[in-house]
C-alpha cells in the first residue's frame, strides 16, 4: 500500500510545440486537502485533466492507491472513485437537482418495470439526493425537483460538490470552486470542502484565491512551467512567498512533507 492515494510521475503532455506538462509529479495523501496553485498557463488544468481522465498524457504514469491506472475517459476515472467538479460545473440548467445529481448513473426501478420498461426510480433518487444535500448542510434547497437554473451560484456549486461527494469514493477534485462566487457563498463552499475532509475524502483544490487556499489546504502544490515547482506546508510560508514561487521570483528551499 502506497503512502499516496493518488500519485502521478513524470507526466508529459504536448500540444503541438507547446509543452503543457514537462515531466510533472503529483502526490495526494489520504484524508488531506491538497491545493494546486499556479499562474495562468502553468499547466494546472492539463495536470488535473490528466488525473481526472479528461485528457490522456503523452508520457508518465498515474497511480491510484499505488496501482498504475490509465483513464481513457472521465467515466473511467469516475468508475475508479475519482470525482471531478469542473469549473463550469457540468450541470444541465433546465433539469432538476435530482436529475443532475444522477445524470449518467440513473437508478432504475426494481423488478419488471425497471427491467422491461427501464423506468427510473425517481423516489429513491430524490431521497438520496435530498439526503446527500442535507448531509452537506445544503438544506437551503427546498425542492429537489426544482430546475438548477433557479439556484444561486453557490447553491449550484453545492449541488455539483454534493454530486461528487455522493459518488466519489476515493478522491474529489474541485476546479476553481469559488472563482465565480461572492464572499458568503465562497464561505459556504469552503465549509463544504472542509466537510469532505472530515468525512475522510481527500480533496484536490485548484484555486487562484490565496486566502482560501491558505485557509483550507493541508499542503500546497505549486505548479510552474509545466512542472511542480514546490510542495509546501501553508504554515511554513507566507502567501507572498507562494506567489513568488509561483511566478519564479523565488525557489522553495525546503520541501516540507
Amino acid at each position: 500500500m502506497s503512502e499516496f492515494i493518488l500519485e502521478a510521475k513524470g507526466l508529459v503532455k504536448r500540444f503541438g510545440r507547446v509543452v503543457a506538462l514537462d515531466s510533472a509529479d503529483f502526490e495526494l495523501k489520504a484524508g488531506e486537502i491538497l491545493a494546486v496553485i499556479g499562474d495562468n498557463g502553468a499547466g494546472k488544468s492539463t495536470l488535473i485533466k490528466s488525473l481526472s481522465g479528461a485528457m490522456i498524457p503523452d508520457e508518465g504514469e498515474v497511480l491510484l492507491n499505488g496501482e498504475r491506472v490509465m483513464f481513457s475517459s472521465p467515466m473511467a476515472a469516475r468508475a475508479a472513485g475519482i470525482e471531478t467538479v469542473y469549473q463550469n460545473l457540468a450541470l444541465s440548467p433546465a433539469l432538476s437537482i435530482a436529475d443532475n445529481m444522477f445524470m449518467g448513473r440513473e437508478i432504475r426501478k426494481q423488478g419488471f418495470m425497471g427491467r422491461v420498461f427501464r423506468t427510473l426510480d425517481k423516489k429513491t433518487m430524490d431521497k438520496l439526493a435530498r439526503d446527500k444535500l442535507s448531509e452537506l448542510g445544503l438544506m437551503t434547497i427546498q425542492n429537489i425537483r426544482q430546475p438548477v437554473e433557479t439556484l444561486s451560484g453557490g447553491q449550484r456549486q453545492g449541488v455539483a460538490v454534493a454530486r461528487a461527494a455522493a459518488f466519489g469514493s476515493r478522491v474529489v477534485i474541485l476546479d476553481e470552486p469559488t472563482a465565480a462566487l461572492g464572499v458568503k457563498e465562497s464561505r459556504k463552499v469552503l465549509d463544504l470542502i472542509l466537510g469532505l475532509r472530515e468525512r475522510g475524502l481527500p480533496v484536490v483544490l485548484i484555486s487562484h484565491n490565496m486566502p482560501h487556499v491558505f485557509e483550507v489546504a493541508d499542503r500546497i502544490h505549486i505548479h510552474r512551467l509545466g512542472r511542480r515547482a514546490a510542495l509546501i506546508n501553508p504554515g511554513d510560508y507566507s502567501m507572498s512567498d507562494a506567489v513568488a514561487i509561483m511566478t519564479g521570483a523565488m525557489t522553495a528551499h525546503a520541501v516540507a512533507a
Binding site: A54, A90, L91, P93, L95, N100, M103, G104, R108, F117
Partner: peptide, 21 residues
Amino acid sequence: TAWGRHVYAVGDDADAAQLAG
C-alpha cells in the same frame, strides 16, 4: 427513462452532459 433525461441534458448543455457521464 435515463435515455429520456439524457436527451434533455444533451440539448441543454452537451458539454456538461458529456462531463456528467
